[in-house]
Simulated scan of single mutants.
Amino acid sequence: MPAKSKSQQKAAGAALAAKRGDIKKSELKGASKSMVESMTEKELEEMASAKRKGKPEHASKS
């Protein structure tokens, strides 16, 4: 499931870094904090690695 927006992709990248131990989980904020607990490393990697070109900064609420 690729990210729908740039901000979602950034959050997934931060959560992935925490899951791998590159940063502390206590440094996470917002969506990335819940992503690290609820998603697997593979899911986070898939979401964070999607291409950014053409993605909106934030996903629409529809």
Rank of each mutant, 00 (worst) to 15 (best):
M1D: 13
M1S: 15
P2C: 06
A3P: 02
K4N: 11
S5T: 07
S5G: 08
K6S: 03
K6Q: 08
Q8T: 01
Q9P: 00
Q9S: 02
K10P: 01
K10Y: 02
K10F: 03
A11K: 00
A12K: 01
A12I: 01
G13P: 07
A14C: 03
A14H: 04
A14K: 10
A15Y: 06
A15W: 00
A15C: 08
L16N: 05
A17G: 10
A18E: 09
K19G: 12
K19C: 13
K19E: 13
R20F: 11
R20E: 14
G21Y: 13
G21M: 12
I23G: 11
I23L: 13
K24D: 15
K24R: 15
K25R: 14
K25A: 15
S26F: 00
E27C: 08
L28S: 08
K29P: 00
K29V: 09
K29H: 08
G30T: 07
A31H: 07
A31N: 01
A31D: 10
S32W: 03
K33F: 04
M35C: 05
M35R: 14
E37A: 15
S38P: 01
M39S: 14
T40I: 09
T40G: 14
E41F: 12
L44W: 08
L44M: 13
E46P: 03
M47C: 07
A48F: 03
A48I: 02
A48Q: 11
S49F: 02
A50R: 03
K51V: 01
K51T: 00
K51F: 01
R52P: 00
K53H: 06
K53W: 06
G54W: 01
K55M: 15
K55I: 00
E57W: 10
E57R: 11
H58Y: 13
H58S: 13
A59V: 11
A59G: 00
S60I: 05
K61R: 09
K61W: 05
S62H: 07
S62I: 05
